[in-house]
């Protein structure tokens, strides 16, 4: 009985014929195409709008600074990629050292600026 079952499972068509039909038939789907359901890669806000961080643009820089302590927010809060965060921090330090931007203070006119990220909801938990 077992042998009978196995014989039923084996296709009756010769293998050679199956392969030939697959290569010539136009209706066979193309399995080499890229995944059409792949999600769009997330980008950080500076990369998305192609913004170049500059130390003279204090208004932009102070948006990544705490309005209470002047601390530069980390990557887990700002949601920037590694490279952009690195560039941002160097530019902020340049602006601070050249007397354009405060170390511990934020300009009062920048306090009403729109928030680019939520400080209360970081991407990764932190100890503060």
């Amino acid at each position: 009985m077992n042998t009978l079952l196995i014989q039923r499972l084996i296709p009756k068509m010769p293998l050679r014929y199956i392969i030939r039909s697959a290569s010539t038939d136009a209706d066979v789907p193309n399995f080499d195409m890229e995944n059409p359901f792949e999600k769009e890669k997330p980008q950080c806000i500076l990369c998305k709008h192609k913004i170049v961080v500059d130390y003279k643009n204090i208004r932009l820089l102070s948006q990544f600074q705490s309005s209470y302590t002047g601390q530069i927010y980390g990557r887990h809060i700002t949601g920037l990629c590694k490279k952009q965060q690195e560039l941002l921090e160097t530019e902020i330090k340049k602006a601070q050292n050249s007397g354009m931007m405060g170390f511990y203070t934020k300009e009062p006119i920048f306090l009403q600026d729109p928030e680019l990220y939520d400080v209360e909801r970081p991407i990764r938990p932190h100890r503060f």
């Binding site: 997330p42 950080c44 990369c47 170049v52 990629c81 590694k82 952009q84 340049k94 050292n97 050249s98």
Partner: peptide, 18 residues
């Protein structure tokens, strides 16, 4: 204060990896 003028370099965003 004097700084070297930087030319913005092109790089890909790596946020999806992070």
């Amino acid at each position: 204060d004097i700084y070297k003028k930087t030319i913005p370099e092109q790089f890909e965003c790596t946020l999806h990896e992070e």
